[in-house]
Structures are given as C-alpha cells and as structure tokens.
Design a protein around this nucleic acid. Sequence first.
DNA 1: AAGTGGTCTAGACCACGCG
DNA 2: GCGTGGTCTAGACCACTTG
Lengths: 237, 237
Amino acid sequence: MNSKYITLYNKIIEKIEQGSYPPSSKLPSENELMEKYKFSRDTVRKALNMLEHNGYINKVKGKGSFVLDINRHKFPVSGLISFKEMAESMEGESKTLVKNLELTKGDKFLRNKLVLEDDEKLWKVVRVREIGGKKIILDKDHFNSTYIPELTEEICRDSIYDYIEKELGLKIGFAKKEITVRSSSEEDIEHLDLEGYDMIVVVDTMVYLQDGTLFQYTESRHRPDKFKFVDFARRAY
Amino acid sequence: MNSKYITLYNKIIEKIEQGSYPPSSKLPSENELMEKYKFSRDTVRKALNMLEHNGYINKVKGKGSFVLDINRHKFPVSGLISFKEMAESMEGESKTLVKNLELTKGDKFLRNKLVLEDDEKLWKVVRVREIGGKKIILDKDHFNSTYIPELTEEICRDSIYDYIEKELGLKIGFAKKEITVRSSSEEDIEHLDLEGYDMIVVVDTMVYLQDGTLFQYTESRHRPDKFKFVDFARRAY
DNA sequence: AAGTGGTCTAGACCACGCG
DNA sequence: GCGTGGTCTAGACCACTTG
C-alpha cells in the first residue's frame, strides 16, 4: 500500500530497533542500498532523509550515514502524542474517565478558535486521564461537528483518534502546539489529584486535516511533576 | 553560495512575509515555478517540501500549495531558539548577566552528559537573562572545550552562537530538548526575580555538530509565567 | 584515486480534485 | 479531460573524507 521509500524507511527503523544497525554504526551506503533493494538512488535518499529528520540517523558528507542513539525517547519525535502512547511509556495502569460529552454551540472564544460558521456546532469532550491510580491530566477537546457528526462516550473512553482515522477516514495533516504554565484552576482542583501543586502545565493543540482545515482544538492540562516534552530538531537552513 | 532550492525557499518565505503570497492564497504550481525560475521540477519540489515541513505552506494533491497563516509564531518552528531571538519577540529591553565563566573538569554527571575523555575539560557558563528589568531565565551552559578552546566574558554577554558559528566555523547539526517542570532551587531563588513562584520550567538541551559529535549541554531555567514553547509538527508517516 | 553524500536535470507514470 | 502534486527512475557533476 505504501510507497517504496516509506517501506524502506520502516524497514531500516526496524533494523535499528532490533539492533541489526546498532547506535554509532554505519548504515550501508546509498549505492549499497540501491543494489540491495533494487531501488533508484532517489528512492533510497528519500528514506534516508526521513530517517535523518526524525532523529534516527545522521548523514555526513564523504563518510556515510550513522545511527544515532538519542532515540531513547519512546515518544514520536515532535509528533502528535496521544494519551495512549504516553501511558505506554509510563508506569502503572492507565484509565480514561469521561466527565462531559456534549454537542453545543460553545462560547465566542471556542467558536473563534475553531473558525466555525454560524450554523456549525462543536463537540465538547472533557476527560480525566488516570495513570497508576492518580488523576494527572485533564483533557478538554473540541471538535468541529461538520467533520465528526457522531461521538459516543465509549469512543471517548477508548481512542477518539482511532475512530477519526479508521472509522471516519479523516486524515490528519499537521498540528501546532503551545506549551505554557499557569496557576491551577478550580476545575483542575476538582478533577485532578494535584497533591499540593498549585500550577499546571497547559498544552494547547490545534489539529488540522491534510487539506488544511482546522478540526480540533484541545486544551490539555498536566500535573507539573508528571509532564515531559521531548523535541528533536535539525538546524533550519 | 547556497543551493538553488534554498534560494527559492528563502525567496518564497520573503514573498509570504511581505504579503505577496497572503495567507490561504495558492502558490504558483510546480510547473509555473519551474517555468518562472527555469529550475527543474525536483529543485522546485525540494523548496516546497521544506516550506511545508517548516509550517509555511500546505500542499494538497490535485489542488495546489496554500499559504498557512499559523506562522504567527515568530519563533523558528521547532528550532533552536536562542535568547536573542526570544528577547526580540518579547516586550522590553533585554540584558545578559554573566555570573560565572570557568574552564573546569566538572563533576561526573556533566562529564558523562558531554561524553568527555579523561584529559578533556569543559567550559561552564552561568548566565542570567533579563527582560524588561526582570531576571527571568537562568542559563547554565556547558561546552566541550575540545571544540571551543577559548571563551571570554564578552562573548558570553553577546552571543556564544555567533562566536561558535561565525568565528570558529563550527556547524550545528541537530539538538534534542527536554522540557520538564520542577520546584525552584536555592540557585534559582538567588539569581532570579521569582516573584513568589516556587516552580521553574527546565529546558535541557543537547546540541550536536553536523558530524554527530555532542558539544553542548545546557540547562535553561525559566520563570513559569514567562515561558512559552511552540511546536509545529506534521504527522509522521 | 576511490567512495561517500549533496545537488540538479529530464522524463515517465500515477492519484487526486474539479469543472 | 486537464491541472495538480506524489512517486520513481537514470544519469550527471560536485564537495567532502579517507587512504
């Protein structure tokens, strides 16, 4: 189903994770990979460039491509981190509690954020994320209902993203995140096990579909001691 | 000096910022750009792909490339943000105070972080960043002295990066950042105007040269109310 | 000199959106 | 059907590292 270069990209990641290409080791050269897989050089280069931008390898002119070992972050690099992915990398059982689910007009702020027309509504979902018996994340999601006509408590308890991508067939394009720190609100105190912390890490996320339309705005509120964000970046030209 | 596609990339950014290509408008098609600049399609596509990955445009198959307007973040997208760049986007005068500058062996933790050989030393720089008369950031930089033989207080007050790149000719390759939130330390309280805040946002950064060698480890401590991190990410394949 | 990755080209075919 | 971007190919030349 996928293109050749994505197949090769995934194949090399697999080899890196299995240890066939250990950290600091040199990958086969572009010529060797062309030979091995019978791909053109451009196809091989596309795969290697993706690996480089995603922090798996480092390419050095005249020398070769080398496996990086900083990829210990289980998180996708600068990616869209879902609660499920995050829970897997942390200790203890995880659970999602749906506190609120409604189709509403929303207030001015939200309607403005989601760029809604007068006749459009939005889904408002409030969920508490629990890991190891502690309620540590409060997620307030808002979806443009034009793209998501139906939403149930069960879907919200499971994974909204699975539903959106697999059931509805919507394709995520890109996302913009803003991370700030604020004083905890009444709502935070009510829903979370703050254990004395009076500040909260707020991650505002705007998610866009592949055609560039905004369809989700989420405010994710994290207990500060359980928050961690990892970012890998290559130098902009 | 630069390659064709980087020239084109910069030219288009300029047009976007000038307003010649306003938000939501369609860029000339790949064919038109080929025609206009007499470049091959591949060269044009390289420039457009960079624009896409850096959050300037969105490409839609069958339709065209469209200018995004979420580029209001003055920060380079997921880039290496220097204090200078940050200060420019904030209100008030900015100043850098050098609190400490020494060539030292360092402790186990630091030597381990920087992967130092027994005979290598490191530069330790402690600086306080002041914006609008308030001391809000405490930067603790550590450089492998093999790559940076000399460092003066003046350089530290100005921009260490300018010195590293322009004077020494070292080329930055990539960086990994980790953002966490912790209780403020004695050192934070001593150096910063915390105004009652008892927590601090810690940004740990590892900076690597283009050949993959680690040469800098920095712990940057921010007053929580003055901290903001913006991240733009396209969906990983 | 040989091998490596970086840039550039010209051409082909495909999948998608739209009228 | 036409124009759009996405994939793939083959070949050329360059810049850099290493022996």
